[in-house]
Design a protein around this nucleic acid. Sequence first.
DNA 1: GGCAGAATTCATCACCTGTTGAATTCCACG
DNA 2: CGTGGAATTCAACAGGTGATGAATTCTGCC
Lengths: 201, 201
Amino acid sequence: MGIRKGRRPGSPDTRAAILAAARDAFAERGFDRASIRQIAASAGVDPALVHHYFGTKDELFLAAVQAPADPRELLPQVLAGDREQLGERLVRMFLGVWDSPAGPAAAGILRAAVSHEWSARLIREFLVSQVLRRVAAELDVPDSDRRVALVASQLMGLAMARYIIKLEPLASAEPAWIVAAVGPALQRYFTGELPDLPTMG
Amino acid sequence: MGIRKGRRPGSPDTRAAILAAARDAFAERGFDRASIRQIAASAGVDPALVHHYFGTKDELFLAAVQAPADPRELLPQVLAGDREQLGERLVRMFLGVWDSPAGPAAAGILRAAVSHEWSARLIREFLVSQVLRRVAAELDVPDSDRRVALVASQLMGLAMARYIIKLEPLASAEPAWIVAAVGPALQRYFTGELPDLPTMG
DNA sequence: GGCAGAATTCATCACCTGTTGAATTCCACG
DNA sequence: CGTGGAATTCAACAGGTGATGAATTCTGCC
């Protein structure tokens, strides 16, 4: 009676279960407050097994949140089409990702990025080298790196307000409305007039 | 010899020292990773004294981060003047607060808001009832609550990108440039054309 | 001078954390 | 049928956490 030691019969994919539990835990409780013991319990498994599969907690986090969405797959859809509606397409895709099953993972990354420098570095490197740089290369306007950073700031703010802080009425607004409201703002960052760099002195 | 028990001579304002240490700790390590023991040590004091002055850790946090800036004092300066430059004035003030000594406290609140629902509620209530509602009341356009929420999202994103994630070139950009770049975006949210609410079906 | 009360520390408690190493059980292959 | 290796659990370690209650020393007042 009770749970015996040793290998269990059948072949449940325990590894995947742990990963799923970790994903959930990190997403809704953040890195610090998500505990390995709790993740293990939630996966119906001993904590040591978590360490057996994924080493340390940091590694588990990396395994759990890696690639919530692949920019190499998504960006071309956004970049294709006329440049005058780039902003709206980007917001639409952004909301699509966050409202998808990948959303919680993204929330986990964002939560972790706020409290851990190494995770902030992670998201920064990801944004810069996987997303922003590619978009910037596709734009044929000057100051493209500044432009994409402004775009990133608005999108991060949108995610914070809508999914983390849950600020109303943004949190429960229709995606279509948000696209129409925020899209043009991004469009201006992309292709509109921006100030020159201030000349010192 | 060594540190004796009991009341110490002189009158160093220990309470203020604890508060300052707590402020620093919460700002740069967030709520979870800031420990009372460490705050106490950093203030040259026993952990129990921290509990003696401020009760629980939550209460200490509230005492440490309350009112990094008083909207009742700052908002009138922003709202005064012509409506066509409201956006720029708001960005300028926002950057002013974050670049001031109050900035770290603001960062602490933001960090905590991301990992704790009760703290997210805190910042949400603060934003809604102390800032957004007042600004909305001052605007004479329809949909003012939606407009201010959009503004809040852009400002939160700016804070995240510049002060938390430290995304370049935003992180080290000149405030004047940011004002000129982001101001008009906020201005559009405030007084520009926004889409109607989508009609369902 | 004595006494109330505030300031401060000490010594804990109970708990949770990540992590490790050994023990056990099962499966697959020879 | 046996054996090696993978899956899984148990038991524990070492450390950190917030919190509490009692003890001690000082200050200020009468």
